[in-house]
């Protein structure tokens, strides 16, 4: 890019719009891989716990959920280490905020349900998972993600109320797949 080129007003505005969009797309494309990471982790963890619980009949396998942040946060930090050049914009910061809040709620409520007050934690988590997914869709201005999040929250809540024990976990497998899909949508939207 030459710094001395004379530009018309129209060319200048076009340059601003193009540069801004290119930068925005790059940032969102970079955020997509975190959705894919957490989506893959959620799918895998829920399936492993489901299978172990199903095969042994022991709900104690649910403690494996705590392995998810233990693996996920360092993995995300490691991925971020190679993103030195990619900055954050308002949308990526808000997306990150939404999912951090979701993570804090999910971990705390799970701990409360296990150690203090027994509750149908699957029901609560699936609702806030759907809500977080829905809000991500709003921030990304992407209707399929909004609808998927809404359906996950509503249908997941009904499913969590109707089925018992390990079968409830399958709703998180679906949630994980949806996160993976959201990541893919973001990647494709911002090629």
């Amino acid at each position: 890019m030459e710094q001395i080129k004379e530009m018309t007003a129209q060319e200048s505005l076009l340059l601003i719009a193009e540069t801004f969009n290119k930068s925005r797309e790059g940032i969102l494309r970079n955020s997509a891989k975190y959705f894919m990471l957490w989506g893959a982790l959620l799918t895998l963890t829920s399936l492993v716990i489901y299978l172990l619980w199903h095969l042994t009949g022991k709900p104690q396998w649910n403690f494996l959920w705590f392995a998810m942040p233990v693996i996920g946060y360092p993995a995300a930090a490691l991925m971020g280490k190679y993103d030195v050049a990619v900055p954050q914009n308002e949308v990526s910061k808000m997306l990150s905020g939404v999912w951090r809040v979701f993570g804090a709620f999910a971990i705390t409520l799970s701990a409360v349900a296990i150690f203090l007050v027994p509750m149908n934690v699957s029901l609560i988590i699936v609702i806030i998972l759907g809500l977080a997914e829905c809000m991500s869709g709003v921030l990304l201005k992407n209707w399929p993600v909004i609808i998927c999040g809404f359906l996950l929250g509503v249908c997941g809540a009904v499913f969590a109320m109707l089925v018992k024990s390990e079968t409830q976990l399958l709703v998180f497998t679906l949630g994980g797949v949806l996160l993976l899909v959201t990541g893919l949508v973001m990647k494709l939207q911002n090629k």
């Binding site: 890019m1 030459e2 710094q3 080129k5 530009m7 200048s12 601003i16 540069t19 930068s23």
Partner: peptide, 12 residues
């Protein structure tokens, strides 16, 4: 700002 590269930097 009315220079291609400086304007691109500022836009980013």
């Amino acid at each position: 700002l009315h220079s291609e590269l400086r304007l691109a930097v500022m836009s980013i």
